[in-house]
């Protein structure tokens, strides 16, 4: 455990705690090799890393969607609010208060916005009036969704992402797992979407675990971050620690003025000792 994680643990019991999990697909393909992370109540935690590192798999292990892809948590534990949830069915996990917004938005294209939002409230039992109130709340955050009356499949990418987040809010979750909300969006829209994510987190006290490729943006909104490579957590820390970390700067934030020569790529290999 890194220093920051220790600090966290001292602060208060995390709402979600993933302990040394190992995930295997199709009984043979080992994807996660001992991943541990803590998500404290009411905070935004981001999980960064290159393609294929196992970020989405980690989210799916938490939400139970792993089972739909022939994957399984074979070792370790996932505790949510003190209870073990590894390998439970996705519907049970949604009922417990974890909602995953999958990569690529995955809204139901042949339904209207309103129907998508009502679908989000599928597991709720607190009556039509409460659901209607929450639909208004979502429209409040995303006013442009209210104007769209056609099929959701014809919405723009940004609007679809907003709908996907709105749909998640409709379930009144305690923890939202957001998988690459910036995918395929223009920089301006990314800013807008992230602004709303921050606001939602503050207003509703929802905890967010955010997976991103756009490290700069993610570290802007997050309180804590984890960095993953090849199925392992290689670095973790509070936002400021990560932003100022030389390796993170070099590999994830970029933006150095001078061009690097290929010689320096050796340094990347050296850093691989992380693993």
């Amino acid at each position: 455990m890194g220093e920051a994680a220790l600090k966290l643990a001292a602060a208060d019991e995390p709402i979600l705690s993933v302990n040394n999990i190992e995930v295997v697909y199709n009984d043979v393909i080992l994807v996660l090799r001992g991943v541990s992370l803590d998500v404290p109540q009411g905070k935004v935690v981001t999980l960064l890393g290159p393609n294929g590192a196992g970020k989405s798999t980690t989210l799916k292990a938490i939400s139970g969607l792993l089972g739909t892809e022939d994957g399984e948590v074979t070792r370790g534990s996932i505790t949510f609010m003190g209870e073990e949830i590894a390998n439970r069915s996705p519907e049970e996990i949604v009922r417990r208060g974890i909602f995953q917004v999958m990569e690529g938005r995955r809204i139901v294209e042949d339904m209207t916005c309103l129907e998508n939002l009502r679908l989000g409230a599928f597991t709720r039992r607190d009556g039509a009036a409460a659901i209607r109130r929450d639909i208004d709340m979502v429209y409040n955050y995303f006013p442009r969704l209210k104007e769209r009356t056609g099929l959701a499949g014809y919405l723009s990418g940004g609007e679809q992402q907003m709908l996907a987040i709105g749909r998640a809010l409709m379930a009144r979750p305690k923890l939202i797992l957001l998988d690459e909300p910036s995918m395929g969006l223009s920089p301006l829209l990314v800013k807008e979407v992230f602004g709303i994510i921050e606001q939602v987190c503050r207003d509703l006290g929802v905890t967010i675990l955010l997976v991103e490729q756009n490290a700069r943006m993610a570290l802007k909104v997050a309180d804590f971050g984890y960095i993953m490579e090849s199925g392992k957590i290689v670095l973790d820390g509070a936002k400021d620690d990560l932003v100022n970390n030389e390796d993170v700067k070099e590999f994830y934030l970029g933006g150095d003025k001078e061009r690097k020569s290929f010689k320096n790529l050796k340094s990347y290999k050296r850093r691989k000792r992380w693993l």
Partner: peptide, 13 residues
């Protein structure tokens, strides 16, 4: 009918 995984992610059995 649209997509079973999406349905499951919404908590639908």
């Amino acid at each position: 009918a649209f997509n079973q995984q999406v349905a499951q992610s919404l908590g639908i059995s």
